Each structure stands twice: as structure tokens, then as C-alpha cells.
Amino acid sequence: MLHNTGATALVVMELRVAFAEGQFMVWEHTRTTLIPQSDDVQDARTPFSIAGRSTHELVAEFRGTFPGKVPVGRPHRIVVEARSSRGSGWREVLAYDLRLENFVHPVTYIVYTNEQNYLPQEELAAGVERRNKLREQWGLPDREPDTA
């Protein structure tokens, strides 16, 4: 959900996700729902306008690599940034901690809740095992401790 606090319309031209570690994920597609179905429309990214003092809802898909290719299951600070008709530079839209300890299927990441401690310990432990296996395959350091 994006909010235009100004009195005049705003055109959003680009979006991206910036990780504190320096990686970026670029806006690639727009979906009609949070959980894609076979009949969901996958549109290429395109600029859109937000009327003055209004909001715009968008289900954006971002493409890129998580920090370290297979991130350690911990909160990662991210910033959603936008380029708009109000300047050529990137501006922060939203910043928060993306809770990747909930990231239990690292090969098929689609949508996860960002709520802390919502998964049972068995699922969290299975996620740690899957991420560690991928980290080993990629030759990455920092195995995660078991959660069990």
C-alpha cells in the first residue's frame, strides 16, 4: 500500500527492495493476488499514478538474490524504495525487519507472514535444515544453529 501525502498526483516509475547488506531486488511483475493462482495475471512492471492524498494497493514481485544467496534465518533490515515523478533519485517508502526465520522453503519463496514465532518449532527446525543444506551446496559459511 503506497500513500501520496501530497496535494497533486504522483507517478511511481520504479520500485526496489534494498537490504542493509547492500543487495537489491528489482520490481519485476505485478500480481492481482498475494497467492498466485493459475488464472492470476502477471503483468510486467509499469509506472502508475497515485492521486493527491490517496493510496494505491499493489502486489509487487521482486527479483534478485537474498544476502548471501541463502540468507541466515534471522531478521534482515530492508527498505522499499521508489523513484517517482517528484525527483530522479530513490526515496525510502518503507523500512522494516524482514523475518527470514519464517523462510522454511528457501527454493520456493512466495509469500510468508512477517509475524514473529508463528510457525511450530518442527517447521522452523526443518527450515533451518533446508537452508543449511543449500548453504553447504553453495559453499557458504555460517551454518544456522538447530532450533529444536
Rank of each mutant, 00 (worst) to 15 (best):
W27F: 03
E28Y: 10
H29W: 12
T33V: 05
L34E: 07
L34N: 09
L34C: 05
I35N: 07
I35P: 03
P36N: 07
Q37P: 01
S38K: 13
D40E: 10
D40C: 15
D40K: 09
V41L: 12
V41N: 08
Q42G: 05
T46I: 10
T46A: 15
F48Y: 13
S49Q: 15
S49P: 06
S49N: 08
A51G: 13
S54E: 15
V59S: 01
A60T: 11
R63H: 12
G68R: 02
K69F: 09
K69S: 06
V70E: 02
H76F: 14
R77A: 13
V79D: 09
V79W: 08
V80R: 01
E81W: 06
S85M: 12
R86A: 13
G87N: 12
G89W: 06
R91M: 11
R91V: 15
R91T: 14
E92K: 14
E92R: 14
L94T: 07
L94A: 03
A95Q: 15
R99Q: 14
L100W: 04
N102L: 06
F103T: 04
H105R: 11
P106T: 14
V107W: 07
T108I: 13
Y109G: 11
V111T: 02
Y112G: 01
Q116E: 08
Y118T: 01
P120F: 05
E123P: 00
E123R: 03
L124D: 03
A125K: 02
V128R: 03
E129K: 10
E129L: 11
R131T: 00
